[in-house]
Design a protein around this nucleic acid. Structure first.
Lengths: 176, 176
DNA sequence: ATGCACGTGCAACGGTATTGCATCTGTATG
DNA sequence: CATACAGATGCAATACCGTTGCACGTGCAT
């Protein structure tokens, strides 16, 4: 009882738990321990996580006692959070959906869609959050003149209507 | 149609069947009717086909008499052809793998790194042959000094070694 | 404290990918 | 041209992941 359910990092600032709680609430969803756990797990991850991974971590045998959420619950939560707009669901080429916390930049600037890099060797996935991908029509030197607007292709070019996801495949440094 | 399973042989030019046959052979695989059928089916399609589609077309009830290949055989052939480098396997976002004839690398060397664009709506794939993708560090990090959660891959892990493929997902103009 | 609606756990379903094994066939060899 | 072997095929069974139905538990407003 003396351990308040949820607020484990009680600093004067804004604990991630409380932030998550608030976001869940404001999304019109109830704030349940399972949802908090999912949110925190996603927040603690540096890249997109698969449902299987999250389920494995949050089901019974997990390190943290008090877990033990059902796989279906986690799945439903992920879907609901996705529909609520708090989480994005991406597909990187293997047959697994990965979920990722949607942009939470403190200032509110949406880190909309950042590119992902997946290693074809080890299957590792990196979030190229600090990278920018520019698509230019002609193989001309593009080094300078950084083009903001993220990974947006110029419309009217080729048959691209709109780009929703950028995916790079290759080998990570470890596998080279 | 009139293409008999036999060798329409090299009377004039090179029938696609023979071309496929040669490619299969040169890939170190046996040339079997099932493989030829798969290759021809892929060649006749202008977009990526799912294994389910191909299986449905090539199994017993198919248009072509004499077909009736097993679903597992088709699957294995697709995988083998993929490993042999004759076919590429892509994932569009639904949980189905799609197979597509790879570009004809005449000299056998790897084809240029041209990005692909795949429409998540219609499944169409465009080869962005005249486009170039540049990956540049974002001018300004999300936050200064500190490493924000999820903003960067773990150091020493999952960093990009080499990029072998660039894949853009989104909607094509027709589906917008 | 109470009640309702929403969330959860359990288990089962469905669909696709994947594999084992016995049989058959393409291909090389004599 | 016949033969033998490695590889390919068919059949069926399996594994896996995502998804859903239903009864019960729980958050949250009253």
């Amino acid at each position: 009882m003396h351990a308040k359910p949820g607020r484990r990092t009680t600093t004067a600032g804004v604990p991630s738990t409380d932030a998550a709680r608030e976001r869940i609430r404001s999304a019109g969803l109830r704030c349940t321990p399972a949802r908090l756990a999912v949110m925190e797990r996603l927040a603690a991850s540096h890249g997109p996580r698969t449902h299987a991974e999250l389920a494995a971590e949050l089901t019974a045998g997990a390190i943290h006692a008090g877990s033990g959420y059902d796989k279906a619950t986690i799945y439903r939560n992920l879907v609901e959070l996705t529909e609520a707009g708090l989480v994005t669901r991406v597909e990187l080429g293997d047959h697994v959906w990965r979920f990722e916390l949607k942009g939470v930049a403190a200032d509110g600037t949406g880190q909309a869609h950042h590119p992902h890099f997946v290693c074809t060797e080890c299957g590792g996935v990196s979030c190229l959050d600090g990278m920018e991908v520019a698509i230019t029509p002609r193989p001309r030197a593009v080094a300078k003149g950084r083009r903001p607007a993220g990974a947006k292709a110029e419309p009217g070019r080729n048959r691209i209507g709109s780009v929703s996801e950028v995916l790079l495949k290759g080998r990570c440094e470890d596998c080279t």
